[in-house]
Amino acid sequence: MPVREPAPLERFLNGILPENPVYRQLLGLCPTLAVTAAMKPAMTMVAATAFVLICSNLITSLIRHLLKPHLRILVFTLTIATFVTIADRTLAAFAYPMSKLLGPYVPLIIVNCMIISRCEVCASKQGPKAALADAVGVSLGFLLALASVATVREILGNGSWFGIQLVPESFPTLILMILPPGAFLALGSLLGLFTWLGRRRKQRASEPETESA
């Protein structure tokens, strides 16, 4: 059935906040939880994911007329796997310590549902312009999500941001926040915050005249 396909600009804007991959769709939670103990690995992960997402969205969009419905997921996965391999090997070649630190999480981008969902929802149905806009928008949304979680965790857990010490070394920090439980606490709290903000915005929009608390 014919459905109106959103314009490229709409795709781009939707990906950032209204359909944020982490805070709205709860996709890509594995890297969000696993590599956000500090900003540096989180941003490397965002860069790798964005590269894979943009490239595979473009390729999928270009070959969308050749896709057979029963084989499409396989084709998506192979496309994504190709670019993940490129990203993984590039990291290992030029940023070996970071590649070591991220460990299996770079190869695991292959199974990041966020990317497959973009191929399925957008790239397999729309032209390369919309697919590119979509991929960039969703990447920015992913950047926002990982940056927020990593900021909370690194500042609370280590007293630093991007490796820059913000508080004196002797200052007590919540070590738990850079351990796995801290990831769940931070993500859960931020998820609640974003849901609350979204709901409040919707309320404001539905009753523009009366100011509600």
Partner: peptide, 10 residues
Amino acid sequence: AFVMISFASS
């Protein structure tokens, strides 16, 4: 448990 892991030295 939270402070036990966070402030191990205290």
